[in-house]
Computed example of a mutant assay.
Amino acid sequence: MKKVYAFLALLMSSLLLFAACDQEKQEKKPEKPAMLEVKIEADDHIELNKETTIACVVTYGGEKVDDADEVKFEIWKHGSEQHDMLKAKNEGSGKYSVTKTFTEPGTYSVVAHVTARNMHNMPKKDIIVGQESKQHQEHGDNAGHGGHHHADLSIMLQHKEYAVNKPVSLTARIAHAGKPLTNAAVRFEVWKDSGKHEFIDASETQAGQYEAAATFQEKGTYSVKIHVEAKELHEHQIEQITVK
C-alpha cells in the first residue's frame, strides 16, 4: 500500500509540474522581431558653398550597429537627373557620415542606403540649400522619389531574392517613429524592365508586417514599389529584387 501511495504522490507531482510548465509557456509573450532602424542626421537648411556633414545612426533592436555591410548616401537636387552616390565613413557608435559641398541653391533629397543584419533600410530626408523663391518652397518640386517623405518612416522589404515560377510572399516591415506602423493600407507595385505594372494588395500579418502572395514567371531583375497609406501618411519606396 505504501508503494501505491508513493506512486500516486509522484504522479500528482508530475502532473502539477507539467501544468505549471504549460501555463508558463502560455503566459510567455512572443518576442517582437528586431528592426533595423536608420535615422538621418542633417540640417533642414544648409548654407551654400560650405562643406557640410550628413550622417545617419544605425541601430538594430535598439543596439548601435558598428559593422554594417554597406552605408551609402544618395543625394540629388529636385528636378535634376544627376544623383550622387557617396560611400559613408564609419565613425563608430552606429554613426556613418559623408561630407559634401553644395554649389547650387535649391531643394535636395538625401537617401541613406543601409544594409546590415540581412536587412535593408533607406530613409529619405529633404533639405534646402541656400535661398529659394517663395513659390518654390510653397509648391516644391518632388522629382525623383515623389511626394514628401517622412524622415521617421522606415520601409523594409524583407527578402531580395526569389525563385521563378514558385509562389512566394512579398514581406515588408514598416515602422513610424521607431514603432511598428499598424492598420496601414499597403500595396506592392511590381514590374520588370518596361513591362506591365502589377498591383498587389498586402495584408497585415502582425504588427507592422505586411505580406502579399506573388509568383514571378520570368528570371531577372524586378522593381518593387511599396505604397504605404495611413492617416496623413502617403509614402512609397522602390526596391530591386532578383528572380533566379
Rank of each mutant, 00 (worst) to 15 (best):
Ala172Cys: 10
Ser133Lys: 08
Ile54Arg: 08
Met12Leu: 15
Glu47Val: 07
Gly140Met: 03
Glu104Asp: 09
Asp66Ala: 09
Glu132Trp: 00
Gln237Arg: 12
Gly195Ala: 09
Asp84Phe: 11
Asp152Lys: 08
Ser133Pro: 00
Pro123Phe: 01
Gly147Gln: 09
Ile174Val: 15
Val110Gly: 13
Lys2Thr: 05
His145Phe: 10
Gly144Ser: 04
Asp201Pro: 12
Ala185Lys: 15
Lys231Glu: 14
Val58Arg: 04
Ile155Phe: 08
Ile174Pro: 14
Leu36Pro: 01
Thr101Met: 11
His145Leu: 12
Phe188Gly: 07
Glu104Lys: 14
Ala143Thr: 11
Glu91His: 05
Glu47Phe: 03
Glu63Ile: 01
Lys32Met: 10
Thr171Ile: 08
Ala42Cys: 11
Asn49Glu: 13
Ala55Ile: 04
Glu37Val: 03
Ala151Arg: 06
Ala34Trp: 05
Glu132Leu: 15
Val129Gly: 12
Glu235His: 10
Leu10Ser: 15
Val190Gly: 05
Ala177Glu: 14
Leu153Trp: 06
Lys125Arg: 12
Val224Glu: 08
Asp152Trp: 00
Ala9Phe: 02
Leu48Gly: 14
His159Thr: 08
Glu211Ser: 13
Thr101Tyr: 04
Glu104Gln: 13
Met35Pro: 03
Lys124Gln: 14
Ala143Met: 06
Val58His: 06
Gly62Trp: 01
Asn183Trp: 02
His136Ile: 05
Glu218Phe: 01
Lys3Met: 09
Met156Leu: 07
His120Gln: 14
Arg173Ile: 04
Met156Gly: 03
Lys196Ala: 10
Gly146Asp: 09
Met1Glu: 09
His176Cys: 12
Asp22Ala: 13
Ser194Asp: 13
Lys72Ile: 07
Tyr96Ile: 02
Lys134Ser: 12
Pro30Thr: 11
His78Lys: 09
Leu48Tyr: 03
Tyr96Cys: 08
Ala143Ile: 00
Asp43Cys: 03
Ser97Gln: 04
Glu51Ile: 04
Lys160Ala: 03
Tyr60Leu: 07
Val98Leu: 04
Lys77Asn: 08
Met12Ala: 15
Pro123Gln: 03
Glu132Phe: 00
His139Thr: 09
Val129Thr: 11
Met119Lys: 15
Ala177Ile: 00
Asn121Lys: 05
Asp44Leu: 09
Met122Asn: 15
Val114Arg: 01
Thr182Asp: 14
Gly130Leu: 05
Asp84Leu: 09
Thr52Tyr: 07
Phe199Cys: 05
Tyr222Ile: 01
Val164Gln: 15
Pro167Arg: 10
Ala9Ile: 13
Leu181Glu: 05
Tyr162Gly: 01
Gln237Thr: 02
Ile200Ala: 06
Val65His: 10
Asp22Phe: 12
Phe188His: 07
Gln23Trp: 04
Asp22Asn: 09
Met12Glu: 07
Arg173Gly: 12
Lys29Gly: 02
Glu161Lys: 15
Leu170Phe: 02
His236Trp: 08
Asp44Ile: 04
His113Phe: 10
Gly220Ser: 07
Val243Asp: 10
Ser13Thr: 09
Ile128Phe: 06
Glu31His: 05
Tyr96Pro: 05
Gln217Trp: 02
Val57Arg: 10
Gln82Cys: 04
Gln158Trp: 00
Gly208Ser: 02
Asn142Asp: 05
Asp43Val: 01
Glu63Met: 07
Ile241Ser: 12
Thr242Glu: 15
Pro30Val: 05
